[in-house]
């Protein structure tokens, strides 16, 4: 498997798309550092980009890659090799190349200009988001039969998690604002990986405001390490569960 991953990774890393993605992140980050000397403000601006762009790029690129590699995957599966190996080598190659592009694009300027703890959290949460959305893309790709539909589903996923879901949460909170909704809110947030990645960030950036909550539950959640552990743990689930499902489907899929 490592050799397969090596060659596929080599192939993906040389695609123009990955190069543009890296450059885009790199230039945005450098630009922000140039515009603002306050590193925490830079992290804030980068976060806004990361939360929107990383899921979009990850899910769309992965879907397109999967369908462009369809015939090649077919050929690999006609070889004496386990489907799991083919699937995982595809997943790991795509995930690793997007992770590499992301860490270089965001991380290099940080190394150069310097950053603080919130910058490292940004790298972590962006990396998590990459893995989650690559997993989701594989799931949507194995569940649909044609490329256009798969890209449509991917965009829908992105739009849903980036915007629709939060509107839904806000509506629920507004409708039931007379009830104690602490745990419900946290449970709702756990249903959206973008929100979880964002929580990791606001735990760093806005902890003073978050401590304004009256409830003891939130106090523990935000004050101790619980919020961080919770968000990271559930994000890992968001990586593993769609990936596991996708693999199950792929193992029985007719190509």
């Amino acid at each position: 498997m490592p050799r397969i991953i090596k060659y596929i990774l080599y192939d993906i890393l040389r695609t123009r798309f990955i190069l543009f993605y890296t450059l885009f992140l790199l230039l945005s980050a450098v630009g922000m550092y140039q515009l603002d000397s306050d590193t925490s403000k830079v992290v804030l601006s980068m976060m806004n980009i990361v939360l929107i762009v990383v899921p979009l790029v990850s899910i769309v690129f992965t879907t397109i890659h999967f369908y462009n590699s369809y015939e090649f995957i077919e050929l690999m599966l006609a070889q004496p090799v386990n489907r799991t190996v083919v699937f995982l080598s595809q997943y790991l190659s795509v995930a690793l190349s997007l992770l590499l592009a992301y860490t270089v694009g965001i991380g290099l300027p940080m190394v150069f200009y310097g950053t603080e703890a919130s910058g490292l959290t940004l790298i972590l949460s962006g990396a998590m988001l990459t893995l989650v959305f690559v997993s989701l893309a594989f799931l949507s790709a194995v569940l649909t039969r044609d490329k256009a539909k798969a890209i449509g589903v991917a965009l829908l996923f992105w739009f849903y998690f980036s915007l629709i879901f939060d509107a839904f949460v806000l509506w629920i909170l507004y409708s039931f604002s007379d009830y104690p909704l602490e745990k419900v809110t946290v449970a709702l947030i756990a249903l959206n990986p973008v929100d979880l990645a964002r929580i990791l960030m606001i735990l760093q950036l806005d902890v003073s405001a978050l401590m304004g909550y009256t409830g003891a539950f939130f106090k523990d959640f935000f004050g101790g390490g619980m919020g961080f552990a919770f968000a990271t743990g559930v994000l890992l689930l968001w990586v593993a569960v769609p990936l596991g499902l996708a693999m199950r489907v792929f193992k029985r899929k007719d190509l």
Partner: peptide, 20 residues
């Protein structure tokens, strides 16, 4: 203003929706 009325809404702070 929103979070003043619905404190739990802080959990969606800094989301794209809030930005918009």
């Amino acid at each position: 203003v929103i979070s003043e009325h619905i404190p739990s809404a802080m959990l969606i702070w800094r989301s794209f929706l809030v930005f918009l």
